[in-house]
Amino acid sequence: MQLSINRESLLKAINLIAKAADKRHNMVILGNIKLQLSESQLILTASDLEVELTSTLKLPAGACVAAGTTTLPATKLKDICKSLPAQAQINLTTQENERCLLTSGKSRFTLGTLPSEDYPSLGNPENITPLIISRSRLTDLIHKTQFAMAIQDVRYYLTGMLFDVSQQQLTTVATDGHRLALARSVIDVSSDLNMQAILPRKAVIELERLASELGKMLGDKDNPVTLSFGREFLQVSLPFGEVDSAGQVSDDLVVTFTARLIDGKFPDYRRVMPSNTDKLALFNQEKMTEVLRRVAILSNEKSRGVVFNFATDGMVEVRANNAEQDEAVEVIQAKYQGEPMELSFNAAYLQDVLGVIQGDVQMHMSQSNASVLVNQLGDEFHQYVIMPMRI
């Protein structure tokens, strides 16, 4: 295999997929990127057997000197390309004894390779259900819920995000058992389509990263994204070529995202949404964020507990203390409807929710030991549930 390519083109293609490579995996080859070179294109693949990212790069005439395939260490290849001068020309040539020579200007690097035929493929979705949604809405659905995913849990399905299609809406849900985040968007599908799929944590983070990267390229423009759900996999193709004046992205570089879905039953999130709430508090988001940030400094390091004491005059006392007998107290103004009550929250859970809300914050409550519904005033498409604590 022999390739001559511009540094910027190769580095962009590598940067978009390199995070999927896993050098800590039991299979050593998964720390490598697979290169497949033909006359017209270069295909780069990185995978950890849960998420597979592929960059397909169209090549100019003469870039492919000799077609072939190989695998190269992902981190080393990325760091070498990054260290070379801008607009440098990179030459890659495979040699005998599983070596690859990379030259650019007066620089020369020899890298170890592993046989490309040993590189595992994740596969492609079968019996596809395609969902078309705008990139900005997809980013919103993931960004405003992903923080509630469990990091480690024996209930493995909680370490992912639910994509639920019903009543011509796509709903994303994440929960770790202590809090729940939900976002929904109207989509153009048949009214009788009902479908659920659970996307693993790493796949959720990578899909959001790719959609955000595309958003940076497009600026205030938007573009449709097709989510191809199969029985075992989700596949998404995103264009990363040049952007024209109309906001259209060329297919000179296309990244294909493939992820293995979690095989499990996600809990019925509709059952945990609080109902029959008879108390309502309305806060200014910025003021509440500041108060919570200050008071939480003296909260217990393990429980992170903060107490809210709601009075009928609309003054809410927020306080925290810890094992060293330190205490922080601050009063914040709110519009409150209901009887006086006291609630305790994990400050971090509430801060995560406040971090994705832009306007005034509503808290719907019933009892001091019942879950609380939090949402932005006038926004029914994003809802958050937090379980109170016992302190």
Rank of each mutant, 00 (worst) to 15 (best):
D263V: 14
M27D: 02
I357N: 11
G112K: 07
A150S: 14
A67P: 10
L72Q: 07
E242M: 14
P200M: 03
S116R: 03
Y349T: 03
M389A: 12
A20T: 08
Q376V: 04
I151L: 10
S344V: 15
V361E: 01
Q168R: 06
V173N: 02
S212I: 12
E301T: 13
T75S: 13
K82F: 02
D48M: 05
A259V: 09
F266G: 05
P130V: 06
C64F: 12
A323L: 11
D48P: 06
K265W: 10
A174C: 13
Q87M: 11
K12W: 02
F310Y: 08
C81K: 12
S38M: 10
T139D: 01
M387K: 05
E380T: 14
R24P: 00
R293Y: 12
S368G: 11
L10S: 11
V154P: 09
A61I: 12
S47K: 02
Q285R: 15
N276D: 06
S191A: 15
A281D: 04
R319D: 14
V295Q: 06
E52Q: 13
I187R: 02
Q41S: 11
P130Q: 10
G378P: 10
S166H: 07
G112I: 08
A148F: 08
P239K: 12
I205G: 04
I142P: 00
S47M: 01
R294S: 12
Y119F: 15
P200E: 01
L35G: 03
V165E: 06
R271M: 11
P130D: 09
V306H: 04
M161V: 10
D252C: 07
Q146D: 12
K279A: 04
L182N: 03
R201F: 03
K202S: 09
G241S: 06
E50I: 04
E327F: 01
L292N: 00
V318S: 10
L158M: 14
L138M: 07
N369Y: 11
I357F: 11
M315K: 15
S166K: 12
L261F: 09
G62E: 12
T139E: 02
D164T: 06
T312E: 13
P120A: 11
I297V: 15
A46Y: 01
A181M: 01
S116I: 13
N284H: 06
H364V: 00
F109T: 07
K23H: 14
Q376I: 06
S368I: 04
Y269K: 03
L280R: 02
T71N: 10
E206R: 03
P60Y: 08
P115M: 07
V255A: 09
Q87I: 02
M195W: 13
L193S: 05
H364W: 14
V372E: 00
N15D: 05
V165Q: 04
F257R: 01
S368L: 04
L182F: 14
R293V: 09
S134K: 09
Q152K: 15
R231S: 09
A311H: 12
P73D: 00
F233E: 00
M389T: 07
L11E: 07
